[in-house]
Simulated assay, not measured.
Amino acid sequence: MTLATDDDVFSALVEPFRGELTAHCYRMLGSVHDAEDLVQETYLRAWRSYGKFEGRSSVRTWMYKIATNVCLTALDGRARRPMPTGLGQPASDPRGTLESRPEVTWLEPLPDRVVWGGSSDEPEATALHRESVRLAFVAALQHLTPPQRAAVVLFDVLALQASEVAELLDTSVAAVNSSLQRARAHLAKLDRESQERAPELDDARKRALLAEYVDAFERYDVPRIVALLSADVVWEMPPFTGWYTGAEEIGALIETNCPAERPGDQMLVEVSANGGPAFALYMRDPVDGVHRAFHLQVPTLGADGVTHVRVFFDPGLFARFGLPEELPAEHLARARALQQDGGVAPAE
């Protein structure tokens, strides 16, 4: 008979919380890389203090207190992670010059696989959890002070009582309530996608819209892409500082700046990010014909089509999503077929 060690007991108690703690740290920091590092630090601190844990709170609450303090320490003196729409500048000219600022620590997308194992078929109980890592919400959180972020996440996302939040943050209930009131008012102005959300699409319509979207991009059919966008769609793509609005304007942006020239030049591979669908785009190199990692798109869907597209021009993100640098072999046949048939859409 093998006796359980302290390591075994500790792991059994805390390991089930790794995914949700990663999501918690991501909401606070806006970076999956930082979130994973801070979760590791959380587990290290928890192990060191495990002998002093007296069970006056649940293990989950205890772990969240450690993780929150780790995040607040990490955020001390750091600049927030913005998206281009959060820089305070008006929409850009789609035919103008693109300005890139790779030195800015931009907001990053969250691969679902690091929180939920990559499954897209989660039970209803996780709906709020997925909603709480939407890019629009996380981007809005970045405009709050770190203590305000912590208060909002602990109270509104994790549904802790104000007294529990006060204890976790080592402050008073009155201070927590005051911080929440200010933070919620600020978030209401920033997270417009929550305030002005269109009716939810059913799953069949979502799948159909996404399939059309992928097909239009892979055929490099710009008029069809434009037709799938809502009239007031927003497009942004860090590290480029500009953002764009309007379906026709975004069509002009694609025609002016996209290096694709014909069907099959760009191929999309579906992944899951921030609780919803996302696409890794591979662009064909005109020199050697190899499709390589180009950017990652996270679209938001509405009743009138695609309402917001956040495009991340960071090929380094592909590895985070478990993707290779070159187009996976199972997609090559479709790329060749599109190139051979000229990308003509099949008859209805």
Rank of each mutant, 00 (worst) to 15 (best):
S100Q: 04
D285V: 10
G251C: 03
P90Q: 11
A319H: 05
L141V: 11
Q340A: 11
L13D: 08
T97D: 07
P16M: 06
G117L: 06
D93A: 08
R262V: 09
I254L: 12
E193Y: 07
Y64K: 13
A319C: 10
F294C: 05
F312A: 02
A162D: 07
G51K: 10
A150M: 01
Q89F: 13
L141A: 09
E212A: 13
E193P: 02
F240T: 00
G302D: 02
G264T: 01
E330I: 05
R207N: 14
T85V: 11
H24R: 07
P147Y: 00
L301I: 03
E164G: 11
C25Q: 11
Y26N: 01
V309G: 14
C71A: 12
A35T: 07
E193S: 05
A273N: 08
Q340H: 04
D170L: 13
S272P: 02
A136Y: 01
Q340S: 07
G51T: 11
G96Y: 14
L98C: 14
V287L: 06
V104C: 03
L38K: 04
E330S: 07
W235Y: 15
E326N: 11
V157W: 04
R284P: 10
M283Q: 08
E248L: 01
V133I: 12
L75D: 00
W116L: 12
A166V: 08
V176K: 13
L210K: 03
P109L: 04
T68K: 02
V115A: 00
E248C: 00
T241C: 12
T61L: 15
F10M: 10
D203R: 15
V214G: 06
L160A: 06
A208D: 13
F321Q: 07
V306Q: 00
